[in-house]
């Protein structure tokens, strides 16, 4: 078998039999997802949230102090405080908060924060988990021992305690011009605490993959370890990263909400679902339910959609379930 052939097989799905009708693993997964109505519905919901978040980002980019479009802060109108939801205007559709700001706008901007947090933290956590897991699984021995020790230690500390500790540690720290006391620190704190799960899955999978014939063949023809890892092993465990990513977004969103609820999340002035829930929970005593309901409802729908989609994605990418 020539090297090209090895590469062809590698990219087509590794150890499992080549997909039926000649489709690649990815094409097959895409086809199976497309046939799954629930997965498509959830994907639609996620896409809707992404559009909302993009809309929020666009609003923030266009709004300028003293400009035509008021910034979120400039929409404060204390005379409009605590207006219940009504169909009078778009502003009042979901009611107003303590400062007279639209809860609808706050929820939309909260979606931007939540999705950004989910995305950014997983952009740190998933590659970290993939690389460390692949290195541990492939090299074994001391490398494996060190990485297993590291993630075992991380896993032995309750996640929320670790997050809180990191948020405190980042207070007043500036790195590359970024204030880590704010949302950037949140990305990093969530990112460096959430890689353990990905690392474990990838390590276990790589331990299997490294013994497969095409890897042995690559080794036999003199390919270096790093090259084998990058060209032949990692592409075959990448689906684990994608699944971790989709489920990790859920974890990051809920962690952001928890941290904001504890007063350790986003900066003051930045709307997020966590700060909305924290701010509105006491309002229930006074019968002001709409802000809490909006934030919880928005988070519930997104988390549910991400969970279901992540689950279906895992099924679609699992070669063992191909014919189910």
């Amino acid at each position: 078998m020539t090297m090209d052939a090895i590469q062809h097989q590698t990219s087509a799905g590794g150890a499992e039999p080549v997909a039926q009708r000649g489709a690649s693993l990815w094409a097959d997964a895409r086809r199976r997802l497309a046939r799954d109505r629930w997965a498509m519905l959830c994907l639609g919901i996620i896409a809707f949230y992404v559009l909302l978040a993009l809309g929020g980002a666009m609003y923030e980019a266009l709004a300028a102090p003293e400009g035509g479009i008021p910034t979120f802060e400039e929409t404060i109108n204390f005379d409009q405080s605590y207006r219940p939801p009504s169909l009078d205007s778009l502003r009042n559709l979901l009611g107003t908060d303590w400062a007279g700001r639209s809860v609808l706008l706050k929820t939309v901007l909260g979606a931007k924060v939540s999705l950004t947090v989910g995305l950014m933290s997983n952009l740190i956590a998933v590659p970290l988990g993939l690389m460390l897991g692949a290195a541990a699984g492939y090299f074994g021995r001391r490398t494996d021992a060190v990485i297993v020790w590291l993630y075992s230690t991380m896993a032995s500390v309750p996640g929320i305690v670790l997050l809180i500790a990191m948020k405190y540690a980042f207070k007043n720290v500036t790195f590359l011009g970024l204030n880590l006391g704010g949302i950037h620190g949140l990305y990093i704190a969530l990112g460096v605490t959430a890689w353990v799960g990905t690392c474990r899955y990838v390590r276990a999978e790589v331990m299997k993959v490294r013994e497969l014939e095409y890897v042995l063949a690559a080794r036999a023809v003199g390919r270096g370890n790093v090259m084998i890892l990058l060209r032949h092993v990692l592409p075959n465990v990448l689906h684990l990263g994608i699944i971790s990513f989709s489920l990790g977004v859920v974890g990051a969103i809920t962690a952001e909400v928890t941290l904001s609820y504890l007063g350790l999340g986003v900066e003051v002035g930045m709307p997020s679902w966590g700060t909305m829930i924290d701010g509105a929970r006491m309002e229930l005593h006074a019968g002001r339910w709409w802000e809490l309901a909006s934030a919880v409802g928005a988070m519930f729908l997104l988390v549910l959609a991400l969970n279901i989609f992540g689950d279906r994605l895992r099924d679609a990418l699992d070669p063992r379930l191909k014919n189910v």
Partner: peptide, 15 residues
């Protein structure tokens, strides 16, 4: 403090 009151005070000052 990290309570709602302080957060709201901060938002008012920012405004």
């Amino acid at each position: 403090g990290r309570e709602n009151m302080q957060r709201r005070m901060g938002e008012m000052a920012r405004y």
